[in-house]
Every structure is written in C-alpha cells, then in structure tokens.
Design a protein around this nucleic acid. Sequence first.
DNA 1: TTTACTGCAAACCGTTTGCAGTTCC
DNA 2: GGAACTGCAAACGGTTTGCAGTAAA
Lengths: 140, 140
Amino acid sequence: MTPQRRVIAQVLDGEHVHLSAEAVHVAAHNLLPEISLATVYNTLNELVAMGEVLEVSAGSGPKRYDPNVTVAHHHLVCTSCGTLRDVFAARGTPAWDLEPAQRHGFVVTGVDVVFQGLCPDCAEADLKVATEAPIEAVTA
Amino acid sequence: MTPQRRVIAQVLDGEHVHLSAEAVHVAAHNLLPEISLATVYNTLNELVAMGEVLEVSAGSGPKRYDPNVTVAHHHLVCTSCGTLRDVFAARGTPAWDLEPAQRHGFVVTGVDVVFQGLCPDCAEADLKVATEAPIEAVTA
DNA sequence: TTTACTGCAAACCGTTTGCAGTTCC
DNA sequence: GGAACTGCAAACGGTTTGCAGTAAA
C-alpha cells in the first residue's frame, strides 16, 4: 500500500462518487502533487480487477469509477452534463434475469442498467433555451 | 442519397446486425472500394441523429450500430468475443420506469440494459482451458 | 454557382505500455 | 539483489475534423 494507492482510495470514497480517471487524477494530485496519470490508471484497473471498484461506461466520454460495490444498483446519467447518480430500484421487478428462451445459449453473468435523462439543472437550462430562442437561432 | 450512403444502409440491414464502424467500413468497402472510413463515421452519426440506427456501447471496444430501431429491446453481449444479440424481454417487468423517489429530479428519457455473459463458443473454450490447465499455467 | 458530400490526412481523446529510476524487503 | 511500484513519454485504438476536390441541383 503505497502513498499513491492510499490517496486514490481516499479520493474514491463516499456516496454518489463517480469520478473519471482524469477527475481522480486531479483530486489525487491535490493531496499528492507528484502522482502521475498512468499510476491512476494502473491503480484503477487493479481496483476494478479486485472488485473493489466498479467501472461505469456512461455512453460516450471517459469511463467512470464507482466505489459503491456492496449494494447492487443501477445508474442514472444526465446526457447533457454527465452527472451520474446511483439508483437502487426500478418500478416493478428489476430486469436481472433473462428468460431462458432469450439467452441464446449464453451463460449470463451480469446486467448493466443505465437510465438516461436530464438533471434538474440541465432540464431548466434546456427549457430556457427553448423559450428564449424559438427560432433556429440555437444552432448559430 | 449518395452511393456511399446507400451502401452503408445496405450493410446495416438485417436481424442481429451489430457492426462496429470498422466492420461497416470493411463490408461497405467490398461493395464500393473507394469509400472512406471518415464517410462511414459521418454517415453513421447522421443515421444515429436521425434515429434510424441505435448506438450500442458494449463495455470497452468500439461502438456498435444496431439497425433494429422499431422494436424496443435490450442487448446481450459476450464479454470474451464481443458477440452481440438482441433480447426482447426480461423476466418480470422490464425495468423501464424509475420510481419517482429515485429520479433525483431528472427528466428520464430512456434506459440502456446490457446483459453480459459468455456465448456458447466462449463458454466451451473457457471450460476446456479450465480443465486442461488446472494449475496457474493459464496466465503464462 | 451554390450546395452538399466525399476522401485524405492530421488531430484528438481516453487509455495503455515500455522503460528507466526508485523504494522496500 | 530482487520484487514491486512509480513517473515519464511514447504509442495506441477509436473517433472527429479541417480542407481541398468533386458531383449534383
């Protein structure tokens, strides 16, 4: 357990923490200025391999890392700003289990469920743009 | 509607078709040798923007493009070889709808559900490796 | 002529890797 | 000394973009 790893573990701690590798690097850099991005990537990959951290790919853009690995959950991502939240239940039965007929002979090992949407801030901004510029001026 | 676009549309047609941009390029190249990768990307992005084609990001690796846009469905991906299949139902109620309490104020616009697993071929290969090399020789 | 589209090549982003130097046992 | 780990910089894969040339309206 090197200082670098300690710092990364420290940065990746809390609820609704979903930092990108870059963001981890920046945060870690504040605590340990010499830390390199490569080390961040190496360490993150080890943590993922060890199952200590979850990799979340929220559409395009960089991967995000989720330290909440004890409770199974889904994700809700803002398609505009990238804000990411954990969600712990869906209406009705979660779609964990695939019907045998739909398994195509696969051994199914997991599911990723990612809800997309607009966070409150982006939804408001969106509305404002739509009303302020009813013409096509938005693209200008 | 240029020849290039026609060819790309033609390549992206059928059931369980989930080609990567590269694969589209190769297939299109067979029908129209001068077609460039950039044009493939441009066209695919337009098709996605028009809603004619669905972008599927199956974990790491390149994006895949799914022409089946009329029927809502999920995906089942082999984590070993990348094989991708459409699945049309999950046991129980699909997890479409987020409980209001779990929406965190978001306007929810969609869900992506991706099942992971091993396809029949990879599962078999996996089993073979495991029995043939019960020691740690696998990593060698 | 104007407009839309193409191909090429260079740029780009996020990530991984090779390698030399360091630290700790 | 050997193993494990680090930082740097270069390489990498996938994707996008600037730009000049071409075809179509």
